[in-house]
Design a protein around this nucleic acid. Sequence first.
DNA 1: ACGATAGGCAAGTCCACGCTTGCCTATCAA
DNA 2: TTGATAGGCAAGCGTGGACTTGCCTATCGT
Lengths: 97, 97
Amino acid sequence: MEEDLFKALADPTRRVILDELTERNGQSLFEICARLATRHGLALSRQAVSQHLAVLETAGLVTPRREGRYKFHDLDPRPLEHIVTRWLTPAPPEDTP
Amino acid sequence: MEEDLFKALADPTRRVILDELTERNGQSLFEICARLATRHGLALSRQAVSQHLAVLETAGLVTPRREGRYKFHDLDPRPLEHIVTRWLTPAPPEDTP
DNA sequence: ACGATAGGCAAGTCCACGCTTGCCTATCAA
DNA sequence: TTGATAGGCAAGCGTGGACTTGCCTATCGT
């Protein structure tokens, strides 16, 4: 659902999580917590990050992958593809040479 | 500021306003009110729409243009351009033929 | 088996956001 | 000038969302 996508992108912490996963894909919850703290000064509780990841999963931007007691998170940027073209006017006849 | 951009896109009513302006650019506040009501079943107060437009202006997605007692609103999709490429991984080596 | 690690569930708090209401200003038509 | 139209400002209400806290389950190492 597109509502979930925009809601997921609305929070700055979630966008930083996407940045983190873009730089290093497949991180676990604790890894993300640590990198948010050390690299972005975001001292969130583990539960807060877990809830953010749940929102990102609902939006289809993050795909969880279980391995034993670990849960790794893979980025999936495909839902983003259509959110720009939606409002990109279909080639307005500009006469700017 | 990018925070304003994502916040502007977070609300479904504002996205419908962007849709309206994409289809018919340069509408006034009352025009937008009317079209939200008749075409989308959104019976919002004039003030509500005005506040939405203010948010869209802050995000740089809508540029106001005054003419007499009218204020027309022009869509500017340029701020949207970078929000996808931000998380598009720089061509991962996929071996899908 | 036991403790430690990785994560989940649920309730509760706090604040930002969407919307309304009421009143005020500015421009146009008669 | 008067009334109507188009829009703005500010206070207030109510809901949703972000975050914490406390406790519970599951997997690994020894």
